[in-house]
Structure formats: structure tokens, C-alpha cells
């Protein structure tokens, strides 16, 4: 087990290098360091000398991947790519191109992201599972068909409509919650109600439908038939057998998204003005702050790989038959 985890972690290194390479390529095909300097120095009256010093200070004056003027190993190491990537692997994100410490910003901004993502996940899970069980109980009746059509209809509505509609109705017309904004600490709760409700409702269609499929698949298996044949009530069958066994795919499905909860939601956060990591990323793209973009891409990849690893481990935990090799 330990050996397996270590091997998987080692395997992550080439992936992260690849990710970094792609990020660099994409970003620098789009932007030259000159562009970045101009963006940060402002619009009016910028001199070429100022651009040069800006680049020098942040190490963007070197060549991107290959330094032809240097000797030996330095042809590869004295470059922007090497300089900027190596430190990422030690999770030292350095400071943003605007001069702020990225690590500190991330540690501050992940809480609002989590404050939305975790309730949405938990409440959503509870509601979706209960609804799905309910539908499965009535499977192959008109309730089932109507519910499925309703679910499909719900997932056919763009998330933008949920957000726009929710904000309009609950905040503007009914004055129930603030339209947008955030606050530190516990005072944040009233700002979270609306995004969480919208997040949950937006996920009901897809989630419930998926769980329904899982349950139906499970309910068709032989052991369930046996249990039913033994005269167990349908309710017991569903809870004791179907739900318990379907929990394995549900849990592993949840585990894979857990780490990514940190990354926040781009759309929700920018609509509701929540200072999480999602809006952090969008701002960085708009401001062309490459240091932040790079850090966020790296973080996202690490978390993704972590999610995959956790899924594998959780498989062994819930099902002893699976052996990791």
C-alpha cells in the first residue's frame, strides 16, 4: 500500500512537469514579457526603460526555454521556465507579478470557496440521494417517468439561468437575502444562503438522475431479488442492501471531487462577488498575472492527481477484494 502510494506520487512528477510546460507554452505564445510589464505598469506614459527594469526585477528578461548565451547546464537552467517551475514543486508560489505573496492569498481565499463548495456538496448529496431513493421506490410507474423527465428538464437549464433567476427573485423581488457580497467569519452566513441554494438546485437534475441509475442497477441484482423473495419490506431492501452497496460508487465519486472543492467555482463566485479562489483565477487571467495563473494551474493539477489517488485508496478501503498493485 505505502509502496503503491509512493509510486503514484512519483508518477505525478512527470505529469506536473508536463502541465507546467503546457501552461508556459500557452501563456507565452499569447503574451510576451513586454506585454505583461505594460499591463502592470499602467496605461499612461510608460517608458521602455521602465519595462526593462520591471522584467529584470521579476526574472522575465531571460529566454523562455533555451538560453543560447549560457554554457553547459545553464543553457537549460538560466531560463524563465526553469527558474519559475522549480520552486513550484516545493509549493513555494513566490509573489505575484503585482508583488503580493501568492501563498498567503491562496490561504486566505480558499475559505470562502470552501464555504460554498462544502455545503453544496453535502446538502446536494443528501437531497439527491433521498430523491433518487424515492424515485427508485416507484420505479416503472408514472411517478418514475414523470420524475425522470423533470430531472432531464432541470439539467437542460443552463446554470446561468439558475443564478440569474435566483438572484432576481429571492434578492431583488423578495428582499430575503443580500444580492451579493461576502463577510469574514460567521457573518458570512447570510451571503452563503443564495449561492448554496442555487448550487444545490442546479445540481439536482444531474445528481439525482445519476444516483437513480446506480440504485436501479443495484436493485436489479440477484442478491436484492433474494432479499425481496425472503419477504423483506421494500423499504428495508432499499436501505439495507441497495443504498449500502451503491454507496461505494457514490463515495468514490465524491472522493475524486473533494480536493477540487478548493478551487472554487468561477461563475458562482464572480456573480456573487465572493472572494474565493475561482474569482482569484479569473482576475489573474484578466490582469495577465502569470505568476498567479501558473500557481493556480499547478495547484489544480496537484489536487486532481490527489483526487485520483484518494479514489484508488478509497476503493481498497470499501472493497477489500481490490488490491492495489
Amino acid at each position: 500500500m505505502t509502496a503503491y502510494i509512493i509510486r503514484r506520487l512519483l508518477y505525478a512528477i512527470p505529469i506536473l512537469i508536463g502541465v507546467n510546460l503546457i501552461t508556459f507554452l500557452l501563456f507565452f505564445v499569447v503574451n510576451s514579457p513586454d506585454d505583461m510589464a505594460r499591463m502592470h505598469l499602467g496605461m499612461k506614459r510608460v517608458t521602455p526603460e521602465a519595462i526593462e527594469t520591471w522584467k529584470r526585477e521579476r526574472g522575465y528578461h531571460r529566454p523562455l526555454f533555451l538560453n543560447r548565451d549560457a554554457n553547459g547546464a545553464e543553457t537549460l537552467t538560466d531560463t524563465i521556465f526553469f527558474d519559475k517551475s522549480v520552486r513550484l514543486f516545493a509549493f513555494d508560489f513566490g509573489s505575484s507579478d503585482a508583488g503580493r505573496d501568492i501563498g498567503y492569498d491562496i490561504s486566505q481565499r480558499m475559505w470562502p470557496s470552501l464555504a460554498i463548495a462544502v455545503p453544496v456538496l453535502v446538502v446536494g448529496l443528501l437531497i439527491n440521494i433521498s430523491l433518487a431513493l424515492f424515485i427508485v421506490f416507484f420505479r416503472a410507474t408514472y411517478i418514475d417517468i414523470a420524475a425522470v423527465v423533470l430531472l432531464v428538464a432541470m439539467m437542460s437549464i443552463s446554470s446561468l439561468f439558475y443564478i440569474i433567476g435566483g438572484q432576481y427573485v429571492l434578492s431583488k423581488v423578495f428582499h430575503l437575502v443580500p444580492i451579493s457580497g461576502y463577510d469574514t467569519g460567521l457573518a458570512a452566513w447570510k451571503f452563503l444562503i443564495l449561492p448554496v441554494i442555487i448550487g444545490v438546485i442546479g445540481g439536482v437534475g444531474t445528481g439525482t438522475r445519476w444516483y437513480r441509475t446506480l440504485f436501479i442497477e443495484e436493485a436489479g441484482k440477484d442478491y436484492v431479488r433474494t432479499a425481496r423473495a425472503k419477504g423483506l419490506s421494500e423499504r428495508l431492501v432499499l436501505f439495507r442492501h441497495v443504498l449500502r452497496n451503491a454507496l461505494i460508487p457514490i463515495l468514490t465519486g465524491v472522493v475524486v471531487v473533494l480536493p477540487l472543492l478548493f478551487m472554487g467555482s468561477l461563475i458562482t463566485e464572480s456573480f456573487f462577488g465572493i472572494p474565493g479562489l475561482g474569482s482569484y483565477t479569473i482576475d489573474a487571467i484578466n490582469n495577465q498575472d502569470f505568476a498567479i495563473v501558473r500557481a493556480m494551474v499547478f495547484l489544480g493539477s496537484v489536487l486532481y492527481i490527489l483526487g485520483l489517488l484518494m479514489t484508488d485508496i478509497s476503493y481498497t478501503l470499501v472493497d477489500p477484494r481490490v488490491r492495489l498493485s
Binding site: 499569447v30 483565477t281 487571467i285 494551474v297 486532481y304 492527481i305
Partner: peptide
């Protein structure tokens, strides 16, 4: 390796960069 790498980059960032490009 190829698809794990591509998959682990947040999609929005990839799209944004490509459109700018």
C-alpha cells in the same frame, strides 16, 4: 500520461489561453 496531463489542467484556463492565442 498524455490524457492525465491534459485532464489535470483546469479546462477554463486552457480555453482562455487558447482563445487569446
Amino acid at each position: 500520461y498524455l490524457y492525465t496531463t491534459l485532464n489535470s489542467i483546469p479546462g477554463v484556463l486552457l480555453i482562455a489561453a487558447a482563445i487569446l492565442m
